[in-house]
Simulated assay, not measured.
Amino acid sequence: MISRFRSLIQRNLAAKIVALMVAVILWGYVMNEQNPSTEGSFTAHVQLVNVPEGYKVTQGTDKVKVTVRGARSLFVSNSDEDFEARVNLQEAKEGKGEYKAQIKMPQGFELLDVQPETVEVTLDPIVSRKVRADINVNGSPASGVTVAKVTQASAEVTVEGPSSAVNEVDRLIGYVGLTSKNDADFALQVPLTAINSDGREVSGVTIQPATMYVTVQMARGLTKKIVTIQPVSENDLPANLELVSMKPNPLQIEVAGAENIIANLTAVNTEKITLADVLQTTDKTVKLALPPGVTVTNHDVLVHIVVRNKKNGKSME
């Protein structure tokens, strides 16, 4: 049986080999004509893997363009969803970095190019810190009534989030609105907002707790008076700069107190303003340093600080 099969194979062996080669060539020719090799591109979704904990992760792009070569039938049977760009962050470091994407694609394709070649990924550590909380009182109370004292539950509140956002927070602020109905003491929970040194809201942070318990004590029979605001600063401006001016906004403020206390009061000072971090003309929000027995509706004031370079006298805008 075996010898007969071997004899059958070996009979006209050369002719059979030639026929096989011709068949292979013809098959390749037909396939190349009917299903030729071609080039094309797909859009691959970027997937981050091995992402470290304790960071806010931001990627520059979520898609890359993948250029491949393959049989025309492969382009018909596959789509963007069959391609994936994986970025391994196992060895990633804090901050911004460029990481190469590894392309996962269907069998039969030859990878020609990936654009962009790398994906920008930023790892921003999640941190928390205590920040000053200020309560501002706006509006006008009932006739003959003024704010005697505002008491807040805590002077500082915890802010948590990516370090870039948390470090931008200058203070937390909450607002208490007065109306003509406010003629007696009251208390309420005041929502807090994180703001930067320019007075703009900082997003992307969590305030814990998000509200502040505030009590407002009202008083009758106090005398009201308009006085000027006098900014007062520390003597800690950087050595290469000199102070040109400090201008408060508003220039004047209404204060209240017993008549014998405010009769001779013409101005109120701000708390001492540190200039150590002033590198150019800037604005700072500071509190008023009120004498005992003197009250104001809003303890905060914005001070415009102008500085210039000692060497050339140019204003530091």
Rank of each mutant, 00 (worst) to 15 (best):
R200C: 01
L243V: 10
K284P: 06
I261M: 12
V202I: 14
E242T: 09
G199E: 08
L222P: 01
D277K: 13
V278G: 08
N196V: 09
D236Y: 11
L222W: 03
M218S: 06
S203I: 04
K272R: 15
M212R: 01
D236L: 07
T228L: 03
T282C: 02
N264Q: 14
D283E: 15
N269M: 03
T206C: 01
T285K: 07
D198I: 01
Q230I: 04
T228E: 14
P209H: 06
K224P: 00
K287W: 00
L275M: 04
N264K: 13
P250L: 09
Y213A: 13
E234K: 15
K247S: 11
T285D: 01
V255L: 12
S245A: 15
A258Q: 15
P248N: 03
N235A: 14
R200H: 12
T281R: 05
Q217C: 01
K287G: 13
K287E: 13
M218Q: 03
I273A: 09
A219N: 10
V244N: 09
G221A: 05
S203Y: 03
V214M: 05
N240F: 05
D277N: 12
G257K: 07
G199N: 10
T223Y: 09
K284S: 04
M246N: 09
G221H: 10
A210W: 04
T274N: 14
A263I: 06
A219Y: 08
Q208S: 15
T223E: 14
Q252R: 12
L222I: 00
D198K: 11
S203V: 09
R220M: 04
E201M: 09
V232D: 12
L237K: 08
N269I: 01
S203T: 13
A239T: 12
L279C: 00
I253D: 00
I273W: 08
V268R: 04
T281H: 04
V255K: 03
D236F: 08
Y213W: 09
A256C: 12
A276S: 15
V268N: 04
I261F: 03
E201H: 03
E271T: 14
A256Y: 05
T282A: 06
P250K: 10
